[in-house]
Write a protein that binds this DNA or RNA. Structure first.
Length: 123
RNA sequence: UGGGCUGGCCGGGCGACCGCGUCGUUCUCCUCGGAGAGCGCCGAGGAAGGUCCGGGCUCCACAGGGCGAGGUGGUGGGUAACACCCACCCGGGGCAACCCGCGGGAAAGUGCCACAGAGAACAGACCGCCGCUCCCGUUCCGACGGGAGAGGCAAGGGUGAAACGGUGGUGCAAGAGACCACCAGCGACCGGGGUGACCCGGCCGGCUCGGCAAACCCCACCUGGAGCAAGGUCAAGAAGUCCGGUGCUCGCACCGGACGCGCGCACGUUCGAGGGCGGCCCGCCCGAGUGCGCGGGUAGAUCGCUGGAGGCGGCCGGCAACGGUCGUCGUAGAUGGAUGGUCGCCACGCUUCGGCGUACAGAACCCGGCCUACAGGCCAGCCCGUCCG
């Protein structure tokens, strides 16, 4: 599990990450990654938050999805910059997804969000 | 052994590794405010759900009277309290165990009763039954049949959820509680039983009365307001402090809000503004400041925060709900909100024999209930049958 030190705990940071962060989506989750320039003291992060709406399911389903994501994000903490603010938004399809599916979707989204910005012109 | 009724209980189990939260403990760092690491204990439900009732707790309020508003509704008990529970009564269903019931009043008043039907609440006459008058026909001169008219009747048919008691008789032109007997029902009285709802028996009366009160209404009883974002404490600040947002040169600027200060306007200090007494009125009390400009926005730390109408067992009282007493147990306290991942074995259900799945569903101050959802399973008691003895 993700320890409480890395949890995103205020609504403002959520809004900032979702609005201004880089976005990458999949069938089950959408990832918003911001550099965290206006956050608190840099270096003690990264901070991670989760958004699981009622569209995903009832309280039991939402809790399960959130706990699985919180566990999976832990593997990626070391690859994130210390000032990063990450918000993982769960889509309705995540309710029926297995833990392995969530794992691959999250890894792919994070890899795309972290990739350096380069023109993807292929011929 | 087949079918049924009722009550209670469980709601996956064991284990390994890596993680998460509270608490405890041992260390380490430290700006002495704290921070981190290791180890150990514990870590969602029978409904945690819907938020429909009732309480505890907290703050505010607490002369009284009238009117209104909301709730409850057979009787007696239980309880902190209830709209809950238990026992009983009444009505209905079932061979029975047992189940069902928004169970006060329709003879205080108002209102409504669709469709069908002639008529639906001061009922009514379609078919029909009955005699009388007139006309026509037949005639074995006793009458009979048909038509028309003015009447009588409500027994039979038909409509309906419901048609103003039922059966038998007397009576009559035909009929009718018009009268009589019995029965049902209503009401008064008397006797008996029960704390009571009510029940049993007797006698008399007039002969007969529809339903809806979850339509208004009437009667009896009950009811202060807000809610843990309740509320307490601490920190900071005397014209600012705190919180939030935006921007960048990253500690400043601008914008917005809460509290406080200040400003303007209005009313007012015993000729009383304004406020309180759940709503309105009367009345009473407080009272020197109050209201508007003012649209909304935001949420520091900590306590409250879990030991309570508590669980389990024995004994006693009680038909029971429950109460009393003794012993014993220690079992979540988060605040963007702690339960996840990878596996092994077993149980159960599907299976294309590879496997897949395991219901309903997540505490948020705490209890007692109600209602709703729920795969599968266990236990006990009772009723009706069948077979054997």
């Amino acid at each position: 599990m993700l320890s409480s030190a890395h949890r995103l705990t205020d609504g403002a940071s959520f809004r900032e990450a979702v609005r201004s962060g880089r976005r990458s989506g999949s069938r089950t989750v959408v990832v918003h990654l911001a550099s965290g320039t206006s956050g608190g003291a840099a270096g003690s992060g990264p901070w991670v938050g989760f958004v699981v709406s009622r569209a995903v399911g009832n309280a039991v389903t939402r809790n399960r999805v959130k706990r699985r994501l919180r566990h999976l994000v832990r593997e990626h903490l070391s690859s994130l910059p210390g000032s990063a603010v990450l918000v993982v938004r769960a889509l309705p399809a995540s309710a029926d997804a297995s833990a392995a599916e969530l794992r691959t979707d999250l890894a792919r989204c994070l890899r795309r969000a972290l990739a350096p910005v380069e023109p993807e012109v292929r011929t």
